[in-house]
Design a protein around this nucleic acid. Structure first.
Length: 353
DNA sequence: AATACGGGGGG
DNA sequence: CCCCCAGTATT
């Protein structure tokens, strides 16, 4: 299967490749320039920038001598402006320290500022013909699908898996540069992130994802939802050994589990009086007394960090309890039978067990 | 290992 | 409108 992979891809490339300006040169400067512009950027957006840059700075020395403000102005709208600054810095370094001569190897290129593994491989292969695989987002996607790799591509382990596979796949290629172009172009045009054109795909028969109907699911990518901090301030009302609890019904975490009266805040609070309680409840609390210090407990979810704080308030047996809707009084035996968030269970076990 | 860096395209 | 996009440097 691996032996048939590269020839098929290259055949496809021959028929479908787009005519792009940086594909007409082997000048490492222009290839480098195009690759940096194309980092995190779609071809349609980057192309006019490439043409303007080549026009304004035809050689690495021209770029080295460029006025930084003018360079940044040309870059305007592309984003990630450190790319432009690194471009400038590296152009000066090459001009001044390397006699305007580009390093001709992957390792030499990798040592330059703004050139990482992907760009070093691209320039080494496209400009110098080095047999080193490019591994960009397109390649992750194509390989994940064709070989049915389900590793999360954002992990270090997966990066090694893909790099190793890519390295094996490029070995039999008759022309490493064309192979690299082919697999990236294939990812960009045929094996697209959304609605890949599987019905007309030359790899259909050998594609693991297509054969198992998983092309929409691959590659696996962890969502990078930022961890949200939430502060759950719980009022734990106790009377006659019973606790006031309710079932969580909102469209939120812990649906259908039981917890206490909850006051959620965006920032930590320290005192019981910081809890914004409805009048009825506040009156009730006034008749009782806070037992011990508030108990802080944290629970880490995949995308939320819940910082719980439990305020235990004991009420005299004599006061009657007009409870808010949905709340009830539960004995410890009953509570044991209720489904509860780990955070609540931990609190109960450690402080009320 | 996690985070910051920008803007555009697509559903 | 929100979701997605995946290279490099820095912490």
């Amino acid at each position: 299967m691996k032996a048939a992979f590269a020839p098929t891809l290259e055949g496809w490339y021959e028929r479908h490749r787009r005519d792009l300006p940086w594909r007409h040169t082997r000048d490492p400067y222009r290839i480098w320039l195009s690759e940096v512009i194309l980092q995190q950027t779609r071809v349609a957006q980057g192309r006019p920038y490439y043409e303007r840059f080549v026009e304004a700075y035809p050689t690495v020395t021209d770029l080295a001598l460029a006025d930084e403000r003018e360079l940044l102005r040309l870059w305007q709208g592309l984003g990630y402006y450190s790319r432009a600054r690194n471009l400038h810095q590296t152009a000066r370094y090459i001009t001044e320290q390397l006699n305007a001569e580009f390093p001709a190897t992957f390792d030499g290129l990798l040592s330059l500022k703004g050139i990482g593994v992907y760009t070093a491989a691209a320039v080494a292969s496209f400009a110098f013909g080095e047999r080193v695989p490019v591994v960009d987002g397109n390649v992750y996607r194509v390989l994940a699908r064709v070989f049915g790799i389900t590793e999360d591509i954002t992990t270090t382990g997966a990066k090694k898996t893909f790099a190793k596979l890519a390295s094996e796949l490029i070995q039999p290629a008759s022309d490493p540069a064309t192979y690299n172009q082919a697999i990236m172009e294939f990812g960009a045009i045929q094996c697209t992130p959304v609605s890949p054109d599987c019905l007309l795909c030359p790899l259909q028969q050998s594609c693991n994802a297509y054969q198992t109907g998983r092309q929409q699911r691959l590659p696996v990518k962890a969502k990078k939802e930022p961890v949200r901090n939430r502060y759950f301030n719980y009022l734990v009302l106790r009377q006659n050994g019973k606790l006031v609890m309710r079932e969580r019904t909102a469209r939120d975490i812990w649906q259908n589990l039981y917890d206490f009266w909850l006051v959620e805040t965006d920032e930590p609070i320290t005192a019981l009086t910081d809890l914004n309680l409805p009048d009825e409840l506040a009156k009730l609390v006034q008749q009782g007394r806070l037992t011990g210090n508030p108990v802080p407990l944290t629970q880490l979810l995949s995308h939320q960090r819940i910082r719980g704080q439990f305020f235990l308030v004991d009420l005299p047996d004599t006061v009657s309890m007009p409870l808010p809707t949905g709340f009830g009084q539960y004995s410890m035996d009953e509570i044991n039978q209720l489904p509860k968030p780990v955070l609540v269970t931990t609190y109960l076990n450690e402080w009320l067990g």
